[in-house]
């Protein structure tokens, strides 16, 4: 009996080492529900945006140009819509991830989430500024593909610091963005798929894989 004691101790030490390494290098509280929430927000936003754009084109037939007050109004409306949806989506995703962290008794803001945030912010912020610069020159065609590609890169980069499944979501976003460059008139549809559908599908998948068990109890 006693002969097994050193082995049992060793096994426990190895398990501890493994657990601490995992826990200190990856943010594991990311919730699938966050993805679902963000995706649903995006889909609703895409629907509103397509309504607005359709309405605008009805008037465009009569006015016949892009620089009239109706176009300025459309631009403003879309920007407000985008900002509103982004805020709601962020709050909702943070909420579900915060809840998940609390369930697991882990801090939300620690070494791992700081690393994750920083590694995603670098590609996201550079992409965002780049896209704003394109808009400055009225180059709107690559806004949707640009968003998808930079977001995909941010996910691939961030996946090293959280659940690694995120990497494949990143690849999908990048591919979708690149395909979108060839169909510039359909940016909104690509966006709806990339930011809406993919998030919901991924969110459901991750919830199923990591959280289903916990939520039964």
């Amino acid at each position: 009996m006693n002969d097994n004691q050193p082995a049992a101790d060793s096994l426990k030490d190895i398990q501890d080492i493994r657990r601490i390494m995992e826990r200190s290098s990856r943010f594991i509280s990311l919730s699938g529900l966050s993805g679902i929430a963000a995706g649903v927000c995006a889909l609703v936003a895409c629907w509103f945006a397509s309504q607005q754009i359709t309405d605008y084109y009805k008037q465009y037939d009569m006015a016949g140009h892009f620089d009239g007050p109706a176009f300025q109004r459309l631009k403003l409306n879309l920007l407000v819509l985008a900002a509103a949806v982004l805020s709601i989506a962020l709050v909702a995703s943070f909420y579900f991830t915060w809840r998940r962290a609390r369930q697991k008794n882990l801090p939300v803001w620690d070494l791992t989430s700081r690393k994750l945030a920083w590694n995603m912010i670098v590609p996201l912020a550079s992409g965002g500024l780049f896209i704003l610069a394109m808009l400055q020159y009225n180059e709107w065609r690559f806004v949707a593909p640009g968003c998808l590609i930079f977001y995909g890169l941010a996910l691939v980069n961030g996946s090293k610091y959280t659940l690694s499944d995120i990497r494949y979501l990143g690849y999908l976003e990048i591919i979708l963005g690149l395909v979108c460059t060839q169909f510039t008139g359909y940016g909104l549809y690509f966006w709806a798929v990339g930011v809406g559908v993919l998030h919901v599908v991924y969110g459901v998948g991750m919830w199923w894989r990591y959280e289903r068990e916990d939520s039964r109890e």
Binding site: D13, M21, S24, S25, L111
Partner: peptide, 14 residues
């Protein structure tokens, strides 16, 4: 001490 080392081998600076 084992925990500190486990963290430091997978994180550059903590």
């Amino acid at each position: 001490r084992l925990g500190v080392m486990s963290i430091l081998v997978v994180n550059e600076e903590v």
